[in-house]
Design a protein around this nucleic acid. Structure first.
Lengths: 259, 259
DNA sequence: CCTCATGGTGCACGACGTGCATCTGTGCAC
DNA sequence: GTGCACAGATGCACGTCGTGCACCATGAGG
């Protein structure tokens, strides 16, 4: 249910001064965004808006897509991505091999599709944030909302992330999925700014950096998960994210050693 | 060589206050780094140190590797990556098809290998920067040195970059090559800092962000090249880079609209 | 000159990915 | 309800990719 977790003092960003949005920086109570993750539409994969069903046809398609994605992930978790053939995936999803390619163009794409959906949801969530929040603040809240949902709603989701993280052959595909959202997020960021700022490098840079930051925070969190075996707390993930965003807000330069 | 170009007032970063390195922030005159790009060693591809020839064997290997890389790039430029088969590449490089896989594991990897080498050189260059420079300052100078060499020394290099930029199927491979350098660069950055800072997220974040920033600056520059057709000036590239680094130094947050 | 190690090559084979023709079920108009 | 038009699923064929294995050729070292 997208519960916003209790957790430690929601410190927000230690933004060193730039931002000074309205007091309680948390989510405005009525602003539940919801996003409906399910979407992923169909053919194009760019993330069209038509989530609502035109009818049974659309529903079946999204169901098939989800079935393939889940089958691919399930098999990848069990046997390792490299050791799974598309034929097996097709069998597991109960479709013809040929049909697989109507939905995904490669095994890797199917396995990563879940995570790619999260990025999509992240951007959507960001768009829905109240305009009073600073850019990084809104990015933070959007990220937390998506990650919260991803980690709590679905236990398999965590296993999926761990597989993606550990399997080397998935890295390119994952990064590509991430990069695919850069432009969309950049537009969303630009929409929050005055024309002057919107026309600069800033939106693009901020979008790319924010997505990279999420990747890093998540990676470090998952690294902890991989080490200890136990599922780390959501609070840890939040602090990782805040650390990253704090650095980005404060500026990345560091003086050299005078000597 | 590696002439440092005349160009407009080498303004360095407008770092808003954090950094305050020694006066003339430019390259210390005697500190030519040199890096010897040629390297790329051989098998592992991780960038081992043994550039020097153990003998004819090593030399032949690097020559073969370069021949394959150049052949792949040449054909990709001429016919488009998708329309080139490995058989053609092998023929162009005058090797057996089977031999191709002794050097690269895919067509895309071969085409991108040139750019990947640049990233490697970038990290090496950064390591060699004087410790007096701030982190972003050193990153800037390293980037300029590599880009300068890449753009001026070799006219084909620019064509290569344009192909990589335009071909969608190369994106994942390119990003993967970039990501492969993140950890190395992060270590190099950490080596410049006190233990406390070195142990934080900062090095990793800064490394990832810097590489992403280079990608963005280069992308925008190449976009200009693609539009106008003409080869844009190196000064433009430098200003793109400075804009990016300036933003990163100043911090990425932007206040929300109060209303 | 002999021997060893390393890299190049040919071969076989399974997996990947796509174009094309066909079949089936849905959406829709009547 | 009936029938038409089309989107999507499937089967088939074909070319490319990528790898394991065995063998040959050449440089390194004695």
């Amino acid at each position: 249910m997208t519960g916003s977790h209790p957790g430690p003092p929601a410190g927000g960003l230690r933004t060193t001064g730039v931002q000074d949005g309205p007091a309680g920086a948390g989510v405005a109570p009525g602003t539940q965004v919801a996003v409906t993750v399910v979407g992923r539409t169909s053919g194009d994969g760019t993330g069209g808006t038509g989530t609502s069903s035109t009818g049974r046809r659309e529903r079946k398609k999204t169901a098939t897509r989800a079935a393939i994605r889940d089958a691919a992930m399930r098999l990848a978790v069990r046997h390792g991505v490299e050791n799974v053939t598309l034929e097996q995936v097709a069998a597991e999803a109960d479709i013809a091999l040929r049909t697989f390619f109507n939905y995904f163009s490669s095994k890797e794409e199917a396995v990563v599709a879940g995570a790619a959906g999260d990025f999509l949801a992240f951007v959507a969530e960001f768009r829905a944030r109240p305009r009073g929040e600073s850019v990084l603040q809104a990015l933070r809240e959007a990220a937390l909302a998506v990650l919260d949902r991803a980690v709590t709603d679905d236990r398999d989701h965590l296993a999926a992330l761990l597989v993606i993280r550990s399997e080397r052959s998935l890295v390119p595909q994952l990064l590509a999925a991430l990069a695919a959202q850069e432009d969309v997020l950049a537009d969303a960021i630009a929409a929050r700014l005055e024309p002057a700022a919107a026309a600069s490098v800033y939106p693009r840079l901020c979008a790319t950096t924010a997505l990279a930051g999420m990747r890093i925070a998540l990676d470090r969190w998952l690294a902890g998960a991989a080490d200890t075996g136990a599922v780390p707390s959501f609070a840890v993930l939040r602090s990782e994210l805040d650390a990253v965003l704090g650095e980005l807000a404060a500026g990345l330069d560091r003086p050299g050693t005078p000597g």
